[in-house]
Every structure is written in structure tokens, then in C-alpha cells.
Design a protein around this nucleic acid. Structure first.
Length: 290
DNA sequence: AGTATCCCCTGAGCGC
DNA sequence: TGCGCTCAGGGGATAC
């Protein structure tokens, strides 16, 4: 089985759409917690989580960056982060449990379950209340625990000029800044490298050494590269993932630099190099991104 | 307050 | 065959 890349914004959005399609309007009548680590961010613990979810109807879904959530008719929000290896699967109630099933949500209609499956348990779900006050965007409820997460480039309220300013106030390497979810959300290691390649920028350049137009262009590339992935249906799910129409999702990836060490740069043919940065791999073209 | 570092976790891949 | 090491990395916590 091919390794699934870590879910970033496009993959999370694909999951949100699938979950929205399958679960809005349905009433939860069973919640089974199979691994405590999956709900570690729920303040009240497992019993409280179950008590508050039972009988609730899923009214809507929303997303910011790599977090998404189900809006319940109780006004509470069931927040999901897929972490490194998480999936939220839509599965027939009778189907065999996955090896890494962490939480099962069953519905009163006995239709398909939502299953939170996560091999490495970096992901999780928790119930939260909407943040009060002006930080809520456009009247859309925002979970209080993720109020520190910045708008992502697809949010109608995303302001490229303001984010450009915020980026240019930082002295850290540009890659660290666009990975910082409190500056701009949704970008992970893969799309950071792809965006920097499109913008012809070296990841190590201090953010405050870049002109505003360069930063603005980089943010545009980040949105473009994620939009391309979204159009292709996301890139993170292998044949185990059952998506919106019940068919398996398997998406071909066309990445210019990420994971392409030694292969020719699609722009100039120079072999792509891999470097270590903050304990992670970074890929770049040594000629295009000096 | 911004920045750097550590830690959480499991399974694949690889050298010996 | 098996053992131990490295790697994958989001993001919260912590120290400076």
C-alpha cells in the first residue's frame, strides 16, 4: 500500500465535503470511544463527550485550515483534526472494524457510520463551544479552542494584503512562517515546498527580507497549488478511503519538488535536492530557488 | 511576543 | 530471521 501523505487543507476539505454530504440532518445515537488518545483534547473526558453528543443532530459543517467541525443543533461543535494519519470514514454499520478505529459515531437511522481511524494518533476529535464575540467570522461559529488559527487562503474574509504584512513582520525563515498556522492556515510541509518552488524562493530566506510583492505572490501560489489538488480530489487517500459517492478515492499526484529528490526540476531540469529544516525534509531546486 | 526545541505515535524500510 | 535505527511530521507545550 502506498504511503498516504499527511492531510493538508485540500485533503481536509475533501473529507469535510464527504462528511457533510453523508451526515448533515442525521441524529447521532451511539458514540464509541476505542482509544482515549483520540479525545485527549476534549476537556470533560469520554463520558462527557458521549453524553453531550447523544441525540444531537448534525446541522452543518465548516472548516478552517486543517481543522473541520460538525455544527450540532445543540450549538456545540464537534471538531476534527486528522493529524498525521487520520481519516474520517463513511462506512456501513455492518462492515468490519478497521485496525486503527479510534471513535465510532452511529446514527439513529442505522445508516452508515462515521469512523475516526488514525494509525498514529496525532489526530483527534473534541466537542467545543463557539467562541463569543468579534473573532467569529461572518456569523459562522468558530470553535473556541482554535481561535488562534488564522484564516486560510480560501476563506472569503482572507485578506492577502494583511497577511503579507504579518508575514513580513517575522524574521524566521519564510517556510517556517507560512507553516505557522497562526499566520496563515492550511499549509503543511508538502504545499509549503510546492508553493516556494512556484514562487522561486529558497525556504531559508528570512521573511522580513522579502518584498511585499514577493510575499503576496507566494501566498497566491499557495492558494493555487492547493486549489489544483482540491480540483483533483485531494491527494491523501488511498483505496481504503470511501469518499462521497462510495467509490474508492485514489488520486494521482503531480508534485514538482516534494519527495522528488534527484529527479529533474520540471522548470529547468536541475536535480531536486533534499535538505533538513527543523527536523523535517525540505525539497527545492538548487537553480530556481537559490 | 517571537523563536527554537522537544515530544507525542506507529509502521515501513534498511543495514548489519 | 531479527534487531535497532531512521524517517514520516502537525501542533501543543515549554524554555529562552
Amino acid at each position: 500500500m502506498a504511503r498516504r501523505p499527511v492531510p493538508e487543507l485540500p485533503e481536509v476539505e475533501v473529507v469535510r465535503r464527504g462528511v457533510d454530504h453523508w451526515s448533515v440532518g442525521r441524529v447521532m445515537d451511539q458514540v464509541q470511544i476505542r482509544h482515549p488518545r483520540a479525545i485527549r483534547r476534549h476537556a470533560g473526558g469520554g463520558g462527557d463527550l458521549v453524553d453531550r453528543m447523544l441525540g444531537a443532530t448534525i446541522a452543518a459543517t465548516d472548516r478552517r485550515g486543517k481543522y473541520f467541525w460538525l455544527v450540532l443543533d445543540t450549538r456545540e461543535l464537534l471538531v476534527v483534526h486528522l493529524g498525521m494519519s487520520g481519516q474520517l470514514l463513511v462506512q456501513p454499520a455492518a462492515s468490519t472494524d478497521e485496525a486503527h478505529l479510534r471513535v465510532r459515531l452511529s446514527f439513529a437511522d442505522d445508516g452508515p457510520e462515521l469512523r475516526f481511524v488514525d494509525q498514529r494518533t496525532f489526530g483527534g476529535i473534541f466537542l467545543d463551544v463557539p467562541e463569543d464575540g468579534p473573532a467569529s467570522t461572518d456569523g459562522r461559529p468558530l470553535p473556541s479552542l482554535i481561535s488562534h488559527i488564522a484564516l486560510d487562503p480560501f476563506d472569503p474574509l482572507f485578506n492577502p494584503a494583511a497577511v503579507t504584512k504579518a508575514v513580513r513582520r517575522r524574521s524566521a525563515p519564510i517556510k517556517a512562517v507560512i507553516l505557522d498556522q497562526s499566520v496563515v492556515s492550511g499549509i503543511g510541509n508538502i504545499y509549503a515546498d510546492e508553493s516556494l518552488w512556484r514562487a522561486k524562493l529558497n525556504w531559508a530566506i528570512p521573511a522580513d527580507a522579502l518584498s511585499a510583492p514577493r510575499v503576496r505572490a507566494l501566498l497566491g501560489h499557495a492558494k493555487d497549488v492547493m486549489a489544483d489538488s482540491l480540483a483533483a480530489g485531494g491527494t491523501s487517500f488511498d483505496s481504503l478511503y470511501v469518499n462521497v459517492n462510495g467509490s474508492s478515492g485514489h488520486f494521482s499526484r503531480s508534485l514538482a519538488v516534494y519527495g522528488q529528490e534527484g529527479r529533474p526540476c520540471p522548470r529547468c531540469g536541475t536535480p531536486i535536492i533534499r535538505e533538513r529544516f527543523a527536523g523535517r525534509s525540505s525539497f527545492r531546486c538548487p537553480k530556481c530557488q537559490k
